[in-house]
Every structure is written in C-alpha cells, then in structure tokens.
Design a protein around this nucleic acid. Sequence first.
DNA 1: ACGCCGATGTATCGTCTCGATACATCGAAC
DNA 2: GTTCGATGTATCGAGACGATACATCGGCGT
Lengths: 207, 207
Amino acid sequence: MGGEMLEFAILGLLQQSPMHGYELRKRLAEVLGGLRSISYGSLYPALKRLYAAGLVTTDEPDRHAPLPADAPPLTGRRGKVVYTITAEGKERFAELVSQAGPEAYDDGRLFGVHLAFFRHTAADVRLRILEGRRRTVERQRDGLRSSLARTRERLDRYTLELQRHGLDSVDREVRWLAELIDKERIDGEQSRPGPAPGDERPRTGDG
Amino acid sequence: MGGEMLEFAILGLLQQSPMHGYELRKRLAEVLGGLRSISYGSLYPALKRLYAAGLVTTDEPDRHAPLPADAPPLTGRRGKVVYTITAEGKERFAELVSQAGPEAYDDGRLFGVHLAFFRHTAADVRLRILEGRRRTVERQRDGLRSSLARTRERLDRYTLELQRHGLDSVDREVRWLAELIDKERIDGEQSRPGPAPGDERPRTGDG
DNA sequence: ACGCCGATGTATCGTCTCGATACATCGAAC
DNA sequence: GTTCGATGTATCGAGACGATACATCGGCGT
C-alpha cells in the first residue's frame, strides 16, 4: 500500500494516450508538480508490475514474459515499447479516482496525483479530497507550531530557522488549499441547480 | 551515496550526548525540520551500519555481533541500548561538517542536516553552503518557471495550480536562504577584524 | 560514404527507506 | 495484581533511487 502513487499516475497518463517509458517519465515530472522526477529505476519496475497485473499491454507482448532461465540477461535488440492501458486498467483507474477517504489525501504525493487527474473526478469527491487534505495539513501545521513553541529555548538558531521555514511552507499550503476549495465551491454552485442559495444550513461536514 | 544523510544526523546528535534509539528518533524529527520523521526501519539499520563501521559503540558491545547461526532470531530480553560516538565517529563527523561542495547542498535533506549542525561548522563553510544551496534552488525555480511558461496552454487548471504552488514554495525558499545569507554576512563582519569598520561602502543591497 | 555524437530509449543492480508488525519493559491507575 | 499506554528494540517485504550499461537514430562534418 501507499506504493500506489506511481501506478495511479501511470494509468492516468496512459488513459489519455499510449506512450513509451521515456515520454511517460517526462510527463510524470510535469504531473507530479514540476519538481521531483521519477527515476527509471522506479518507472520500469512499476510498468512491469502493471503489465503483470494486466492493467497495461505492450506492442510486443512477449517482452515481459519470464525468460527461458539461462538466457543472457536480455542483451541485444531493445527498441521502443509502447504501453497501452487495458480495460482492467481503466476500471482500476476509475476506482482510484473515486476514492475520497484518507488514503486519497493523507500522503501528499498521492494527493498530488489525485489533483493532477481531478478532471476525471466527480465534483463532490473533489471537494471531499480537498477538505480532507486541508484538515491533514492543518494538523501538521498545528503539530509543528506547538513543537516550535515547546523547543524555542532548547534549540539553536539554525534549527529554529529550519522549523520556522517549514511552518511557513505548511501555512502557505493550507491557504492554497483554502483557495482551491473556494473556487471549487463557486463552480459547484454555478453548475448545480442546488438546494436554493438562501437555504444555507451549517453543513454537517463528513458522513 | 547520498545515503549519508541519516548517518550524518545520528553522528551529530550523538556528538552532543549518548542516546538510545527511541530518543534519537524524536530528536531526529526536530532536527530534520519538524515535519518528516525517520522510521525505525531506517534508524536501526543505520545504527547497525555505524556500529559495523566503528563510528558508534553500545553499552553491551556483543549486541550487534554476528549470531551463532541457528539461534532463534533474537527473541527474549531486549532492553535499552545506549549508543555513544567513538573517536573515529567524531573524525567522520568533522569531515562531513567541513564539506562545502555540491554534495553538501544539492540534496535538500542533506542540506537540512548541515544547517542543523551549523554551530559545528566554520563560518566560511557555512556561507559557501548557503550560497551553493541558493544557487541550486534558484536553478530549480528557473526550471519550474520556464516549464510552467511552456506548458501553460497544454495542461489543465489543477495541474497548473500544483505547479504554481510549487513555484511559489521554491521562490519562498530562495528568499529564506537570502535572508540567512544576509544574517551570516553581518555576523561575519561583526566578529572578524575585517577590512576596517570605517570603510563602509554603500552596500549593493544584493539582488 | 563514413564515423561520431548527442538525444532518445530500455533495462538492471545494489543500497537504502518506509510502513507494518511483533515483541519487551515499565510505571501508574484501578 | 492486572490491564494499559508510553517507552523501547527489532525485522520484513515492497518499493524508490542513483548509477550504470547498453541500444537506436538522426544529423553533421569531412
């Protein structure tokens, strides 16, 4: 578990169009927020797992079949391999995209992937994920804040600076999420017939 | 390499006083900036490596000695184990603390550890690390910026938001580093005999 | 025509990290 | 005197990463 994130992202990209590994990697970097890029040492094993699980196929289907034992470790002829998502892969993606619980937002990376494929996500699920993520990050912020308060005297200037900067980042993230949630709510109200705009009961959050 | 980071942090903490794993872990979380904490699955293997390399010792030295083969996997009596840094460990720490090249700042985590132990670092090395880190993060920022410019049309709203937030964070980090560098320079000028205190040229205020 | 080179492209290896899990010890509450 | 939560040590399997090797292709100089 938790190692779903790469699989999820790959399925999401292949959903849009078939691709080979090299391009997948570039697109993955964009999708993951522009910073962190995925290494081949992660990507190819992930593709192999997806193939084994029947969620993607290749041009040349015997490529990933088990080798006849003693053959030299596959030296010689290696060309492009185009990966395509299968029907099962699409099902799995639909399943992942509709998760709205803690597994969707507690891990920041996985949350990022969900966000990257939000256009495949139902509006109410989007909102629940965003709100869940906000709660998670708020909790982190509060923990960091009280830790900073507790250790203010004990730690040296540089460590304090590090913590201050970290707290600032987390704080910014909360505000960013709040903005996203606002926008999402506005969109929702515009497109939905809705429960009458004067009828605003104080929302029993969660269920 | 790059897996030095945990070793470095452990040596730094044990330099201050002997400790057992549980406390080490809590301190590690503080030192690493308050967010990310180290798991036991990382910590104990790291301690084992340090022990094997002769950089730390324990109360009970035969604890990490190779087992007599068929013995049950060390069930039964397990108590506190206090780890102490050795002379070689101190040497190694001094060596790590004096590194001022890219290996000290290209990786953000490792940079964080350097920062956490800056009080053991020479002033000129401190400045070089901070400036190197700034350059690295500036390069990241520029890459992200141009990537954002290139893909503005092609990507959807949510991915764009993710990238925008990422860019904002990196930007903030650059400014934070610039502040740290300024403070560091001021400290340097105050404590050093320096190039004559009446010689104050009008300060080019930086970028 | 030929070789070379940098971009494209696939793949594996060793090392490390993580989350989950199990197990042990102790003090205080009941 | 026993249950319980904090303290504490330890391992395992899955997976991620950096480094490295190897293969293919298009263009460019000569």
